[in-house]
């Protein structure tokens, strides 16, 4: 018969390790650089392994891991670095970009010219609470309920943060596309 430690390792390898890429992607957006993301992921996975007995098999292991990641980041990493918000997303006007481009580019073709790195840079410039909500939703495809669980806020707050984060990011990407000449500003 296998010892309990072996069972634990087997279960952890089967259920948690396949999610390493997802944990890493979120860590990278939270921490902001690869070296710190590496440390953050290592610490997260070790904590998860050591507290594996607290995880109920068959429940949402992804949300559980991301919750540990987020706590680790807030408690141990956030103080070290990361500038404050570079935009005020408090006053986001809904669907402003669409209203600007609806005649010239209603299908949003200009987005296709923006490369990965530029999108990630724009995400990184969002204030933290908006950045993490957007990453959990649009990068990792968590449901609103899962995001609420990971970030410890009500679903209604997730909804409003996600709306504002998506709109703020869209505005940044639009401004960038204008600057690069991927799309022309409509004169009114």
């Amino acid at each position: 018969m296998a010892a309990p430690a072996d069972n634990r390792r087997e279960a952890f390898e089967r259920e948690a390790l396949p999610l390493l890429d997802a944990v890493y992607r979120v860590a990278l957006r939270l921490a902001g650089d690869e070296a710190q993301a590496d440390d953050l992921v290592q610490e997260t996975m070790l904590k998860a392994y050591r507290s594996w007995h607290q995880y109920k098999s068959g429940t949402n292991v992804r949300a559980w891991l991301l919750t540990i990641l987020r706590h680790t980041f807030i408690n141990e990493y956030r103080k070290k670095k990361r500038a404050g918000p570079t935009v005020d997303v408090g006053e986001i006007e809904g669907y402003h970009v669409f209203h600007e481009v609806q005649e010239a580019d209603p299908e949003g073709n200009f987005f296709d010219q923006i490369v990965d790195d530029e999108v990630l840079r724009a995400i990184d410039s969002l204030p933290e609470e908006f950045r993490e909500t957007l990453v959990l939703s649009d990068v990792e495809q968590l449901t609103y309920a899962e995001i609420a669980e990971v970030t410890g806020v009500p679903v209604g707050t997730v909804k409003s943060r996600l709306f504002r984060a998506r709109q703020a990011l869209q505005q940044k990407l639009y401004d960038y596309a204008l600057e690069m000449g991927y799309i022309k500003r409509v004169e009114r």
Binding site: F98, G108, D112, V115, V119, L120, D138, V139, L169
Partner: peptide, 13 residues
């Protein structure tokens, strides 16, 4: 438009 934007975000990240 918004659907295209969200698909684009997924594809790029």
């Amino acid at each position: 438009f918004e659907d295209a934007y969200l698909s684009f975000l997924r594809a790029r990240t």
